[in-house]
Each structure stands twice: as structure tokens, then as C-alpha cells.
Nucleic acid binder design. Sequence first.
DNA 1: CAGGATCCGATTAGATACTG
DNA 2: CAGTATCTAATCGGATCCTG
Lengths: 223, 223
Amino acid sequence: MSSYGQLCPVAKAAELLDQRWMLLVVRELVAGSTRFNEIHRGVPQMSRTLLSRRLSQLRQHDVVSRQETPDGPVYQLTDAGEELRPVVEALGTWGVRWLRSLAEEDRDPAFLVWDMSRNVNTDALPDHKTVLALTFPDATVSLRHWWLILSRAEVDICDEDPGLDTDVHLTAPLRVFVPVWRGDLPWHEAVVGGELELQGAGPLVRAVPRWFRLGHFAAIPRP
Amino acid sequence: MSSYGQLCPVAKAAELLDQRWMLLVVRELVAGSTRFNEIHRGVPQMSRTLLSRRLSQLRQHDVVSRQETPDGPVYQLTDAGEELRPVVEALGTWGVRWLRSLAEEDRDPAFLVWDMSRNVNTDALPDHKTVLALTFPDATVSLRHWWLILSRAEVDICDEDPGLDTDVHLTAPLRVFVPVWRGDLPWHEAVVGGELELQGAGPLVRAVPRWFRLGHFAAIPRP
DNA sequence: CAGGATCCGATTAGATACTG
DNA sequence: CAGTATCTAATCGGATCCTG
């Protein structure tokens, strides 16, 4: 956290926030994660050691508070932290508008599914527990198959067959589904193009697109 | 510029922007600097080598364009770059509200005077060329004395006596003047407290505060 | 689950010298 | 003025192992 030696508020803010992973940790907190492992699920490629350091730094600057509870520590944004929301929003808005090209390694299925799980439109779900199987044919074998167990109470992610009946099976290459999730490609266009397939009972299949809100920045207009 | 391996727009934007000095370079461009050395004057502690690298990266991502002119190369924000303004604004707004404590080394007189020079309210200046001498008693000897030569056409900075008649002499420790410039301490309060002194003809002295707009984020309300 | 301590390797920033 | 090339030194992040 070496200093820039400048009095400018941008410099002082950057000193804290431009450190590696820092903005993504803040993104997770802004998104509502509070537990250490919950935050880490949003930044799985970050080492836990570093996450710990970053959280300490945020606490030192009164951006985050930490409270011990019977269930373990809970991290929460302070008033100062809450006001970082516009920063993250501005950054994401800019990113989705102007940084369109994604490298292969950016299409991490683990993050994608985790992001899906926290953008479930619980109101639109069927009354009963529903199992949505996901297959990304172009992903590494170990990251190719996922299951989302959806109910109004909670959403579970499995990376191995949970042994439940699958209600709907979604198959699409990451090359297609990631742009859909980011809002670069309309859902129906991917379906018509034949690259996004849905199998299951008709009414359920038609309802699937409403089960999710898509990624946070999908609705941002593009240049 | 190693990748975060995430599809999230915040992550993609951070990959580019969270690199050391990057946001401050963007700040300079947003502030209107276009020439290499002009940009560097805003980030004097950054090595020119690194500034060169950062500008290349910004060009690679179509944030900045570079045009050869008879006077030399000119850097300008593209449409994408122009849209980084909200990011810098959000960051600075947050910084000035929540990061109040400045270390000694953050009160760099060189940056301060440079920032003053580009926040001159030319409309409020006297008709004739005016020399404002600045003394920061608590600064290192070599950074203690400055002169601003103010006219409606241009503003010049000198770090040694230009040999012109001084119209107004401002004396204040950085410990006081930097908070004034950041908007943490009202100008008149510093004067009343006796720590900000102005010497010169009465009408000129009274006009000085109107010659500057103060730092860009000085007017942001504080929590 | 939630980390702290340590060590090592990769990155990368800075200094220096050089070019047109 | 406006950079580039190269080398080195310091930093930082990740992996590993450990704790309660």
C-alpha cells in the first residue's frame, strides 16, 4: 500500500482501492456478501491469505466492520463502504460498455454459476423445488456440469449430480452463454441461433428466462 | 496486467485501471492535459518510463488516442476515455469525504501549485499581469517558495524568483493550506486563525480568494 | 469455518542510459 | 521535447502449513 504522495482525493482513494483484488472484494461486499467464505466464493481465484489482508485494510480505513457472532465473524460495509457503491457501479458500467472482448480464461464457469445463483428472481420460480441442470460443452471437464437447486427459500449450487430429478436442462457453450449473461447477446437470439438449448416441460422451459435477472450490468445500454 | 479471470465487467475494468498510477494518469487526461510532459507534471513522482507504458496500455484499449502534430504528439481521450470521467469523479468524491487524514508526504507542494495553476479563475484576475508569491514555511527548503504569474492569457509557475515585482505574498504552512485547498478548512477561518497570511495592496489581497476555484473536490459536502 | 505465519517466486516499477 | 531499451531491486502475491 505504498503512497502516491499526493494530496488529491483521487490519489488517496486509489492508494487503498487500486490494490490487486481490492475492488473485487468491495464488489462482493456491495453485492451483499458478509461471511469470509461467502466473499471468497465471489473471488475464488484469490488466495485466502490475501483476502484476509484486504479485509484488514478495509477495516483499518473504516470501510468495513467486523462483528463476531455465534456463527462466526460477519463483515459489513460501514457508511463509508456503502458509499463505494457508486464507484463500483461506475466502473462496471464503463467496463460493460467499452471492454467487450473477453479472453477464454475470463469465462470462469464457477463465477458464472455463482453469479447466477445470486441473481435468481425468486418471485418468478415455481412453487415447488426446481432443479436446473447446466452444461457448458466448451468448458473444462471438471467445470462442465452444474446444478442449481432453486426454491423460494434458498438457492443451492452443486458441481456434481445431486441425484435429484432435473426439471430443465440448459446447454450452451460459455462462448454463447457468457455474452447472454453480460447482456451482449439477447437470450432469444441465442435460442433461435440454436446455440442455447433448453430441455424440459414446455411451460417450465418458457419460464426459465424469467427465473434470473441476468448479470448486474446486462441492462446497461451499449455505445 | 495479469487477468482476474472473471467475466464481471468490474473485473475487466479493474484489470486495466487498478494498475499503479493508472487512475492518476486518467485523472490528468480528464483534467485536460494532452502533452506528455503536461501529463507528467500532474504525476511528477511517476517515472517517465512507466507513464509511457501506461499511455500505451490506454491506447491499446482505445481509451486514449495519440496524434502527431507539428508541435509533437498529443494525447486525447476517446469516447471510451471520456466516459471514465464519472469513475474518477466517484473515486475523488469518495476520497475527499472519507479519507481525511493526509500523511506528511502527501502534501506535495509541487502538485499543489500545479493544481492551483490549473484552477485559476481567469475572469476574476486583475487586467494586468499579476505575481502571486507563495511561501510554505513547513516545506523542504527547495520546495518552500513558488511564484504564480497570472494573466488572463496564461498562468506560469516558477520555483525560483522570476525577478518580477510581487503583487501579493501568501504565506501558510502546508499543514494549513492543503486542507484549505481540499475544502476541509474554510479559507477565512485560516485567515482569522492567523495561519494564512496575505501581504499586498488591500484590494488585491481581498480579491485573492476569488482568483482560484480551489481543488476540484473542495465543494463536496462532508459526512 | 476463519484465518495467521512463513517462505519463495514472479512481477513490476524505478533508475539509468540512450535516441531522434 | 518525447520517448525507448535494459537491468536491477524491491515488492507483492500465492502456496503451504499451521491454529483455534
